[in-house]
Simulated scan of single mutants.
Amino acid sequence: MHLNYNLILSIIAILTAIFMPWIHAHFFRVKLGITLKNSRGLTYYRGRTPTHIRHIVVSTKSNIPAENVVVFLEWVAIKNGDGAWRTVFNEGRLPLMWQYEKKGGRRIGPYQFCNLVRISEGGELHLIPQEDTSSLQEARLSGRGKMRIGIQAVGDNGNSPEVTIEVDYDGTWPETDQGWEDALIVSEPRRAVDWID
């Protein structure tokens, strides 16, 4: 029996193309990182209403892109008047909205921006999930307050560690970027185990 080497090479090439995503997902895991985009955020108009938003940056730490990445809200805690933290959301993973109100998973390579918190003038500071849900009703700051947010970026071929971000809002509506840097302090993400009160 005579083997046709071109046929064998063609079959190998086809099988490689079919199974390449599986090979990447299982043998080339991508490490994702989460950082704060900047300390001032962005103020813009939604219709006629001034709105301020803060973003996080989801990035890869390799040359291989991460596929179908979603940033999940894991939990939210609000600081009570007595100084104790009270968990107000812990009902499973809730995907956050990508910048420009984009939903679904994203290809990350080298980075993408994800919405974290938003406030409109005269409104409440709140998180920005991909779908509205009543389970986040208590996860809002209507004036001065502090909030801790647990998030994790998860993709088909890699993820980030779960991180905690602390939001400290003084309840004011500043008119300048420098004012926002002082009025709404969003910490750099830290691994959840690194928090010490």
Rank of each mutant, 00 (worst) to 15 (best):
residue 79 K to P: 02
residue 188 E to C: 01
residue 68 N to C: 09
residue 93 R to E: 14
residue 169 Y to E: 03
residue 108 I to L: 08
residue 85 W to Q: 09
residue 194 D to T: 13
residue 169 Y to G: 04
residue 12 I to H: 04
residue 184 L to F: 02
residue 131 E to G: 15
residue 171 G to Y: 08
residue 39 S to T: 14
residue 40 R to Q: 12
residue 133 T to A: 03
residue 18 I to E: 10
residue 74 E to K: 15
residue 83 G to R: 09
residue 181 E to R: 15
residue 57 V to F: 07
residue 49 T to P: 04
residue 39 S to Q: 13
residue 72 F to T: 05
residue 99 Q to D: 15
residue 108 I to C: 06
residue 38 N to G: 03
residue 123 G to Q: 02
residue 33 G to D: 04
residue 15 L to Q: 15
residue 83 G to F: 12
residue 51 T to Q: 08
residue 181 E to A: 11
residue 142 S to A: 12
residue 195 W to K: 06
residue 72 F to N: 11
residue 178 Q to E: 12
residue 10 S to C: 09
residue 94 L to C: 03
residue 181 E to N: 14
residue 156 D to E: 06
residue 43 T to P: 02
residue 116 L to N: 07
residue 83 G to H: 11
residue 28 F to Q: 07
residue 147 M to N: 06
residue 19 F to R: 00
residue 36 L to H: 10
residue 161 P to C: 04
residue 188 E to L: 14
residue 187 S to H: 05
residue 45 Y to R: 15
residue 70 V to P: 02
residue 192 A to C: 07
residue 124 E to T: 09
residue 33 G to H: 00
residue 112 Q to H: 08
residue 91 E to C: 10
residue 196 I to Y: 13
residue 120 S to A: 01
residue 102 K to T: 11
residue 168 D to G: 06
residue 100 Y to S: 05
residue 78 I to V: 14
residue 179 G to I: 02
residue 73 L to H: 02
residue 132 D to Q: 00
residue 110 P to Q: 07
residue 73 L to T: 03
residue 100 Y to K: 12
residue 109 G to N: 06
residue 83 G to D: 09
residue 170 D to C: 10
residue 166 E to C: 13
residue 182 D to M: 08
residue 126 H to E: 12
residue 54 R to M: 15
residue 141 L to G: 07
residue 85 W to K: 10
residue 41 G to Q: 04
residue 28 F to H: 06
residue 118 R to Q: 10
residue 137 Q to I: 01
residue 141 L to P: 05
residue 113 F to V: 09
